[in-house]
């Protein structure tokens, strides 16, 4: 049984990583084929660095992800605090279900609905091109918001509501109380919400496809590249992304392990 479990896990992981290995492997191909390996070379990595379209797309992706994450995190955190303080139960469930809509809707429906909105408003304003950076930014904030709210709300429920009141009784203004008492106690939720918003933004293709206009992000560039026969250059771009994700995950994991060790040490001291 134990052996069977090990084999099962191994086989699935192998299938899971096969396309990724193919991608990394062929990014070092000397020829421009993605199916026959002719020899090792770093040619496509050089090509990638020289390709201004790829570099622009990378810049655009990061810019969009940072700006949309900041907006979504601020709006979402404030909204979560507001929703948490709501007394009217009906209103509260109403707001929460509407805010879950972008999460439950298929991406294509969210994308099409936003595109139609922007086209409609654009036509009313008489604009020639209604899509661009601002429309894709609005779209990314919209689909990230529920994830921020859903990450922050549970943390608010775990904090003691009297803490903020105590701070105010001790003379701080509501804003000071929020920044000094409430925010530190929900910070882990805010951070995980922001992280999620960031990764969703970097990875999104479908909704961006409908709301971007001529603004090109990396997934959109990959889409136009895969419409034709692609060169290993795209694999080189993706291998770099793969490497950065791997490093990021390793750092996160190591810090988690360190934290867990620290916690266990504290609990041991506590027991003494």
């Amino acid at each position: 049984m134990k052996i069977f479990g090990k084999i099962y896990l191994g086989v699935i992981f192998a299938v899971m990583y096969l396309p990724l290995l193919v991608m990394v492997f062929f990014s070092f191909n000397a020829s421009n084929s993605t199916a026959t390996f002719t020899g090792f070379s770093l040619h496509w990595y050089e090509e990638m660095l020289r390709d201004s379209a790829a570099m622009d797309a990378l810049k655009n992706t990061l810019l969009l992800a940072v700006v949309s994450t900041v907006i979504a995190t601020i709006l979402g955190t404030l909204a979560a605090v507001g929703i948490f303080g709501m007394r009217n139960k009906w209103f509260k469930t109403g707001v929460l279900s509407v805010s879950n809509v972008p999460m439950m809707n298929p991406d294509i429906v969210t994308g099409v609905s936003l595109m139609l909105l922007f086209a409609f408003v654009g036509r009313m304003l008489g604009a020639v091109e209604s899509l661009g950076f601002f429309t894709i930014l609005i779209a990314h904030v919209t689909f990230s918001l529920p994830y921020v709210v859903l990450n922050v709300l549970p943390k608010l429920m775990q904090t003691d509501p009297h803490l903020a009141e105590a701070a105010q009784d001790l003379g701080s203004t509501p804003i000071q109380a929020f920044f000094r008492v409430v925010l530190p106690s929900i910070s882990s939720g805010v951070v995980s919400g922001a992280l999620m918003a960031f990764t969703l933004s970097i990875d999104d293709f479908v909704i961006s496809h409908y709301t971007s206009g001529s603004f090109t992000t990396l997934p959109l560039l990959i889409y136009t590249m895969t419409k034709k026969r692609v060169t290993p250059e795209m694999y080189a771009v993706c291998s770099c992304i793969f490497l950065s994700v791997l490093v990021l995950l390793l750092i996160m994991n190591l810090s988690q392990i360190r934290q867990a060790k620290k916690m266990s040490r504290i609990s041991v001291i506590g027991k003494k």
Binding site: F13, P19, I222, I241, F242
Partner: peptide, 19 residues
């Protein structure tokens, strides 16, 4: 293993499908 499961989630669906 959790990390290994999550890693492909961060990769773009387009590129995995193309691969």
């Amino acid at each position: 293993m959790m990390m290994l499961v999550m890693l492909p989630m961060w990769m773009n669906l387009l590129i995995l499908t193309y691969s």
